[in-house]
Design a protein around this nucleic acid. Structure first.
Length: 214
DNA sequence: GACCAGGCACATC
DNA sequence: GATGTGCATGGT
Protein backbone atom coordinates (compact mmCIF):
# COMPACT_ATOMS: atom_id res chain seq x y z
CA UNK A 1 0.00 0.00 0.00
CA UNK A 2 1.23 3.47 -0.85
CA UNK A 3 2.24 5.82 1.93
CA UNK A 4 -0.30 8.42 1.01
CA UNK A 5 -3.08 5.96 1.64
CA UNK A 6 -1.60 4.91 4.95
CA UNK A 7 -2.16 8.38 6.36
CA UNK A 8 -5.83 8.23 5.56
CA UNK A 9 -5.96 4.64 6.74
CA UNK A 10 -4.44 5.68 10.07
CA UNK A 11 -7.14 8.26 10.52
CA UNK A 12 -9.91 5.83 9.68
CA UNK A 13 -8.55 3.13 11.99
CA UNK A 14 -8.06 5.55 14.88
CA UNK A 15 -11.45 7.16 14.47
CA UNK A 16 -13.15 3.79 14.35
CA UNK A 17 -11.18 2.52 17.33
CA UNK A 18 -11.39 5.51 19.66
CA UNK A 19 -14.27 7.56 18.30
CA UNK A 20 -14.36 11.36 18.22
CA UNK A 21 -12.16 13.07 20.82
CA UNK A 22 -14.03 16.37 20.77
CA UNK A 23 -11.07 18.63 21.41
CA UNK A 24 -10.68 21.40 22.59
CA UNK A 25 -12.37 21.27 26.02
CA UNK A 26 -12.13 25.07 26.42
CA UNK A 27 -15.33 27.07 26.67
CA UNK A 28 -14.05 30.18 24.92
CA UNK A 29 -11.50 31.23 22.35
CA UNK A 30 -9.24 32.87 24.90
CA UNK A 31 -9.38 29.75 27.10
CA UNK A 32 -8.26 27.61 24.15
CA UNK A 33 -5.44 29.99 23.33
CA UNK A 34 -4.25 30.08 26.93
CA UNK A 35 -4.46 26.28 27.06
CA UNK A 36 -2.42 26.00 23.86
CA UNK A 37 0.37 28.04 25.46
CA UNK A 38 0.22 26.35 28.86
CA UNK A 39 0.34 22.83 27.44
CA UNK A 40 3.77 23.29 25.90
CA UNK A 41 5.73 20.21 26.97
CA UNK A 42 3.26 19.71 29.80
CA UNK A 43 0.58 17.15 30.57
CA UNK A 44 -2.98 18.33 30.22
CA UNK A 45 -3.93 17.52 33.83
CA UNK A 46 -1.43 20.13 34.99
CA UNK A 47 -2.75 22.63 32.48
CA UNK A 48 -6.27 22.09 33.79
CA UNK A 49 -5.15 23.06 37.29
CA UNK A 50 -3.59 26.25 35.99
CA UNK A 51 -6.66 27.12 33.93
CA UNK A 52 -8.88 26.49 36.95
CA UNK A 53 -6.78 28.96 38.96
CA UNK A 54 -7.27 31.56 36.25
CA UNK A 55 -10.96 30.79 35.92
CA UNK A 56 -11.59 30.94 39.67
CA UNK A 57 -10.11 34.43 39.63
CA UNK A 58 -12.05 35.50 36.52
CA UNK A 59 -8.80 35.82 34.59
CA UNK A 60 -9.81 34.00 31.41
CA UNK A 61 -10.33 37.46 30.11
CA UNK A 62 -8.18 39.59 27.83
CA UNK A 63 -8.73 42.97 29.50
CA UNK A 64 -8.07 41.60 32.97
CA UNK A 65 -4.93 39.77 31.91
CA UNK A 66 -3.74 42.96 30.26
CA UNK A 67 -3.67 44.66 33.66
CA UNK A 68 -1.52 41.95 35.27
CA UNK A 69 2.26 41.71 35.06
CA UNK A 70 3.95 38.53 33.92
CA UNK A 71 5.02 37.92 37.53
CA UNK A 72 1.44 38.20 38.71
CA UNK A 73 0.17 35.85 36.00
CA UNK A 74 2.93 33.37 36.85
CA UNK A 75 1.47 32.88 40.33
CA UNK A 76 -1.78 31.55 38.88
CA UNK A 77 -0.26 29.20 36.33
CA UNK A 78 2.38 27.50 38.47
CA UNK A 79 0.87 23.99 38.18
CA UNK A 80 1.47 24.00 34.42
CA UNK A 81 5.24 24.24 34.90
CA UNK A 82 7.67 26.60 33.11
CA UNK A 83 5.42 29.25 34.59
CA UNK A 84 7.74 32.23 34.25
CA UNK A 85 8.27 31.59 30.54
CA UNK A 86 4.63 30.85 29.90
CA UNK A 87 3.52 33.97 31.80
CA UNK A 88 5.73 36.06 29.52
CA UNK A 89 4.36 34.30 26.47
CA UNK A 90 0.81 35.02 27.63
CA UNK A 91 1.71 38.68 28.10
CA UNK A 92 3.35 38.72 24.66
CA UNK A 93 0.15 37.34 23.15
CA UNK A 94 -2.06 39.84 24.99
CA UNK A 95 0.18 42.68 23.84
CA UNK A 96 -0.02 41.37 20.28
CA UNK A 97 -3.80 41.14 20.48
CA UNK A 98 -3.93 44.68 21.84
CA UNK A 99 -1.73 46.33 19.22
CA UNK A 100 -2.88 44.28 16.22
CA UNK A 101 -6.58 43.78 16.91
CA UNK A 102 -7.54 46.22 19.63
CA UNK A 103 -7.97 43.28 22.04
CA UNK A 104 -10.78 42.00 19.84
CA UNK A 105 -10.58 38.26 19.22
CA UNK A 106 -13.38 38.52 16.69
CA UNK A 107 -11.27 40.78 14.49
CA UNK A 108 -8.37 38.35 14.77
CA UNK A 109 -10.75 35.54 13.85
CA UNK A 110 -11.39 37.17 10.50
CA UNK A 111 -7.72 37.61 9.65
CA UNK A 112 -6.43 35.52 6.75
CA UNK A 113 -5.22 32.22 8.20
CA UNK A 114 -1.82 32.22 6.54
CA UNK A 115 -1.07 35.80 7.52
CA UNK A 116 -2.29 35.24 11.07
CA UNK A 117 -0.09 32.17 11.37
CA UNK A 118 2.96 34.19 10.35
CA UNK A 119 2.06 36.88 12.86
CA UNK A 120 1.59 34.34 15.65
CA UNK A 121 5.01 32.87 14.92
CA UNK A 122 6.60 36.27 15.50
CA UNK A 123 5.33 36.26 19.09
CA UNK A 124 8.13 35.15 21.40
CA UNK A 125 7.18 31.87 23.01
CA UNK A 126 4.86 30.74 20.24
CA UNK A 127 6.31 28.20 17.83
CA UNK A 128 4.77 26.16 15.01
CA UNK A 129 2.84 23.70 17.16
CA UNK A 130 1.34 26.34 19.43
CA UNK A 131 0.46 28.54 16.45
CA UNK A 132 -1.30 25.67 14.71
CA UNK A 133 -3.07 24.68 17.94
CA UNK A 134 -4.37 28.22 18.36
CA UNK A 135 -5.56 28.32 14.76
CA UNK A 136 -7.14 24.87 14.77
CA UNK A 137 -8.56 24.46 18.25
CA UNK A 138 -9.06 28.10 19.19
CA UNK A 139 -10.15 29.64 15.90
CA UNK A 140 -11.45 26.61 14.01
CA UNK A 141 -9.12 27.10 11.04
CA UNK A 142 -7.75 24.19 8.98
CA UNK A 143 -4.17 24.24 10.32
CA UNK A 144 -2.83 20.77 11.08
CA UNK A 145 -0.94 20.36 14.35
CA UNK A 146 2.24 18.27 14.46
CA UNK A 147 3.67 17.09 17.77
CA UNK A 148 6.13 14.62 19.24
CA UNK A 149 3.67 11.76 18.97
CA UNK A 150 3.05 12.48 15.29
CA UNK A 151 6.77 12.21 14.71
CA UNK A 152 7.13 8.98 16.67
CA UNK A 153 4.21 7.30 14.94
CA UNK A 154 5.20 8.36 11.43
CA UNK A 155 8.78 7.35 12.13
CA UNK A 156 7.90 3.96 13.59
CA UNK A 157 5.79 3.20 10.58
CA UNK A 158 8.71 4.23 8.38
CA UNK A 159 6.73 6.96 6.68
CA UNK A 160 9.43 9.52 7.47
CA UNK A 161 13.18 9.37 8.16
CA UNK A 162 14.64 10.30 11.55
CA UNK A 163 15.56 13.79 10.43
CA UNK A 164 12.26 15.29 9.46
CA UNK A 165 11.18 18.83 10.25
CA UNK A 166 7.79 20.14 11.29
CA UNK A 167 6.71 21.24 7.82
CA UNK A 168 7.75 18.03 6.09
CA UNK A 169 5.50 16.10 8.48
CA UNK A 170 2.70 18.63 8.15
CA UNK A 171 2.82 18.43 4.35
CA UNK A 172 2.83 14.63 4.41
CA UNK A 173 -0.39 14.67 6.43
CA UNK A 174 -2.28 17.46 4.68
CA UNK A 175 -1.36 16.19 1.23
CA UNK A 176 -3.08 12.92 2.04
CA UNK A 177 -6.26 13.83 3.87
CA UNK A 178 -9.13 16.17 3.08
CA UNK A 179 -8.57 19.81 3.95
CA UNK A 180 -11.25 19.80 6.59
CA UNK A 181 -11.16 21.43 10.00
CA UNK A 182 -13.09 18.63 11.66
CA UNK A 183 -10.73 15.97 10.33
CA UNK A 184 -7.65 18.01 11.29
CA UNK A 185 -9.09 18.48 14.76
CA UNK A 186 -9.91 14.82 15.32
CA UNK A 187 -6.83 13.39 13.62
CA UNK A 188 -4.36 15.27 15.79
CA UNK A 189 -6.35 14.48 18.94
CA UNK A 190 -6.48 10.80 17.94
CA UNK A 191 -2.73 10.76 17.34
CA UNK A 192 -2.20 12.10 20.86
CA UNK A 193 -4.63 9.50 22.21
CA UNK A 194 -2.96 6.52 20.55
CA UNK A 195 0.48 7.98 21.23
CA UNK A 196 -0.15 8.23 24.97
CA UNK A 197 -1.33 4.63 25.08
CA UNK A 198 1.13 2.96 22.75
CA UNK A 199 3.92 5.26 21.65
CA UNK A 200 5.71 6.58 24.72
CA UNK A 201 9.34 7.15 23.92
CA UNK A 202 10.57 3.96 25.61
CA UNK A 203 7.63 1.67 25.27
CA UNK A 204 7.20 -0.66 22.37
CA UNK A 205 3.95 -0.43 20.45
CA UNK A 206 1.92 -3.35 21.79
CA UNK A 207 -1.70 -3.98 21.01
CA UNK A 208 -1.67 -0.71 19.14
CA UNK A 209 -4.54 -0.27 16.70
CA UNK A 210 -1.96 0.84 14.15
CA UNK A 211 0.35 -2.13 14.58
CA UNK A 212 -1.02 -3.88 11.49
CA UNK A 213 1.92 -2.82 9.35
CA UNK A 214 4.75 -2.55 11.84
C1' DG B 1 13.55 8.22 42.38
C1' DA B 2 13.70 8.24 37.47
C1' DC B 3 11.04 9.35 33.68
C1' DC B 4 7.71 11.82 31.15
C1' DA B 5 4.34 15.53 29.60
C1' DG B 6 -0.39 18.08 23.65
C1' DG B 7 7.54 23.14 23.09
C1' DC B 8 10.34 27.00 22.54
C1' DA B 9 14.36 30.07 22.64
C1' DC B 10 19.00 30.58 22.95
C1' DA B 11 24.04 29.22 23.32
C1' DT B 12 27.62 26.85 21.40
C1' DC B 13 30.20 24.26 18.24
C1' DG C 1 22.75 23.66 10.44
C1' DA C 2 22.86 20.37 14.04
C1' DT C 3 23.08 19.52 18.83
C1' DG C 4 22.59 20.65 23.74
C1' DT C 5 20.44 23.06 27.59
C1' DG C 6 17.23 25.73 30.65
C1' DC C 7 12.71 26.23 31.84
C1' DA C 8 9.35 23.51 36.43
C1' DT C 9 5.24 21.23 38.14
C1' DG C 10 2.88 16.93 39.08
C1' DG C 11 1.62 12.02 37.76
C1' DT C 12 3.16 7.19 37.14
Amino acid sequence: MKNENKIKQFYNILFKHYGPQNWWPGESIIECIIGAILTQNTSWVNVEKAIKNLKDNSLLNVEKLNFLSANEIAEFIKPSGFYNQKAKTLKNFINFLTTEYDQNLDIMLHEDTKILREKLLRIKGIGPETADSILLYGLNKPSFVIDKYTYRILNRHKLIPQQTNYYEMQNLIIDNIDRDTYIYNEFHALIVKVGKEHCKSRAICRNCPLEFDL
